[in-house]
Design a protein around this nucleic acid. Structure first.
Lengths: 269, 269
DNA sequence: CAGATCCATACCGTGAAGGTATCAATTGCC
DNA sequence: GGCAATTGATACCTTCACGGTATGGATCTG
C-alpha cells in the first residue's frame, strides 16, 4: 500500500547506473540485497520495472516513468523534511501565491528585511485560478488582480497600482511633471513583449533607443529606473487594482505583518 | 535517512483526528502500535511532533508543518504510482510546459482527439523561465514566445500567430473586414498583454469600456470573443512568433505527433 | 574453451512492525 | 474526596522484511 522510499531510492540508483553492482556500491549495500529489493519492489508495484540480462539492464516503460517520478519525489521529500526541521527551530513560514502578471518583489523585499526570521515560499499560480493554492492550503496569501469574493476568502484591496509612461529621458514629454492619456496620442506605444522583446529588460532597451513608449505599473517603473529613461505618472490611465486574498481561518502575526507591508508599499508610491 | 511513508500516513491520521484511539481505528491497527510508531517517527526526525496529555493531542510547530507537507506528499505519491501503472498499461504521456501568456488549448484539443491514448500533463511555468521544466526533465515540450537557442534545446518555430485588432463592437473601424497598421495610427493602443501588468480579462474589460484598442494573437482573439468586442485581422502587423522547444534527447512518436499538430493548427489559422 | 563479469538464489542473523495485556495519568461524576 | 471511565504509554511475544555471505547460471572475451 505505501510506497517504500528506500526501495524507490534503490531503484532510482539502479536506473541511473543501469548496473546492479555499481548501484549497490554507491548505496553501500551488497549486490544480492539490491537484486532482491528491486524484485520485491516490482512485486509490490505489480509491474516489471527493469529488463535484465546478465550483461545489461534496461528500463521498461513503467520503469522509465517511475524513474522520472523518483527524480521529482525524492528531492521534494528531502525539502519537506528540511522545512519541518526549520519549523522545529522556530522558523516561521509564509507561502505567497501570485500569478505571473503581478509584481510582488518590492513587497517581499520589504517584508523580509523587517522579518528576517520568516521564510517565504513563492508559489506561482495559473492566472485563471490565482486562488487555488489558497484553497488547498498550499498558500496563506494570494495576489489577485481583480476582486474575487468567493466563499472562504477574505479580500484585502491593497491599492491601485498607478501606471507610468516610460520613455527616453531625451523625449520632449520627459520634461513634464505628469501626463494624461491624451498626451500620448500619436506616440508609438510598445505592445510588449513582442517578437523582438520578451524580457522586461529588452523592453527598456527598446524604449531607451527610441523605439517607443510603454505604460508600466509603478512597481515596474521603480525597479527598472535608469538614467536614460524617464517615468512619468499618467494621471488618467486606469490604475491596476491589486488585492490580497487570505484564507479566513488563519490570522497570525506573520500574515498580518505581510498585509501591512504590502499595503504600505503601494501607499508610499 | 529515508522518510517512512507509512509512519507519515500514521502521523497525518493522528494529526487529523487529534486522537490516538480513533486514528488507530481508522488505520486498522491497535492503539499501542500507533503510539510506538509515532514515538519512533519523532526520534527518526529528531523533533517532537505532538504534545500529548492523557486527554488531548496537539501539534507542535514542526508537527503542523509536517502535517501540511503530508497533505501534499501523500496524494502526490499516490498520483505518481498511478502514472507508473498507467505507463505499464501502455499509456503514453506527454508533458507540455507553457507560460500563461501562450495559448495552447487548440493544439491540445486537436492532439488529444487524434491520440486518445496519450495522457497530457500541463505544466505551468513562470514566464521568465519557460524552459525550466524542459531542462529538469519535467516536460518534453515547452511553448516559448521568442527564440531561445540555449544549449541542449531544439527549437521548432511552429509559425507566426497572426495578430488581430480588438476593439469595441461600436467602434467605427469595427465595420471593416480587415485593417492595416496605418488604420490604427492615432488610435489609443493598450499596452497589453504584458505579463507584469494585467490579466487577459481585465484587458478585454478595458477595451470594451472604450479605453483603447489592443493587438492580440489569433488564439487569444478566438477564445475571448464577446458580443461587445470586435476582432479584425491586421494584415501587415508582425505576427507573434511561437516556438516549441524540445529536449534533444527524446524523439518518440508522441512528441513528433504533437509537433505536427501544433504546426498544422497555426498554419490553418 | 577458460576466465571474467554480472545478476539471481539460498540461507542465516537482526531488528522493526504488529498483536495482546496491562499500567499510569487525567477527567468527570457522585 | 473517591471511584469509574477514558486515553496514551509500556512490556512482551511473534512474524517478517532487510541486511549479510556463499554460490549458481548465463553471457561476453581472449
Amino acid at each position: 500500500m505505501d510506497l517504500d522510499l528506500r526501495k524507490l531510492r534503490y531503484f532510482a540508483t539502479v536506473a541511473e547506473h543501469r548496473h546492479f553492482g555499481r548501484a549497490a556500491e554507491r548505496l553501500f549495500i551488497a549486490q544480492p540485497v539490491l537484486s532482491r529489493q528491486i524484485k520485491s519492489f516490482e512485486q509490490e508495484l505489480g509491474c516489471k520495472l527493469l529488463i535484465r540480462t546478465t550483461r545489461s539492464v534496461e528500463l521498461t516503460a513503467a520503469g522509465q516513468q517511475l524513474y522520472e517520478e523518483a527524480q521529482q519525489i525524492l528531492p521534494s521529500i528531502a525539502a519537506a523534511v528540511r522545512r519541518v526541521h526549520d519549523a522545529d527551530q522556530g522558523v516561521q513560514r509564509l507561502a505567497i501565491a501570485f500569478s505571473p502578471g503581478l509584481y510582488v518583489a518590492d513587497a517581499i523585499r520589504e517584508f523580509t528585511s523587517r522579518h528576517a526570521d520568516v521564510e517565504i515560499d513563492l508559489i506561482p499560480t495559473r492566472w485563471w485560478e490565482p486562488d487555488r493554492p489558497l484553497r488547498d492550503g498550499r498558500a496563506q496569501i494570494a495576489y489577485l488582480r481583480r476582486q474575487f469574493d468567493e466563499s472562504g476568502l477574505h479580500i484585502v484591496p491593497i491599492g491601485q497600482d498607478p501606471r507610468f509612461a516610460c520613455m527616453p529621458a531625451a523625449h520632449p514629454l520627459a520634461a513634464r511633471q505628469e501626463l494624461s492619456m491624451a498626451d500620448l496620442d500619436g506616440e508609438r506605444m510598445l505592445d510588449v513583449p513582442n517578437r523582438r522583446t520578451s524580457s522586461i529588460e529588452e523592453k527598456f532597451e527598446l524604449i531607451a533607443s527610441g523605439h517607443g513608449i510603454a505604460l508600466v505599473p509603478l512597481s515596474v517603473a521603480r525597479s527598472y529606473s535608469r538614467p536614460d529613461l524617464a517615468h512619468l505618472p499618467v494621471t488618467d490611465a486606469p490604475g491596476i487594482e491589486t488585492c490580497l486574498a487570505v484564507a479566513t481561518d488563519r490570522h497570525d502575526r506573520v500574515l498580518r505583518g505581510f498585509l501591512e507591508t504590502a499595503t504600505a508599499i503601494l501607499r508610499r508610491g
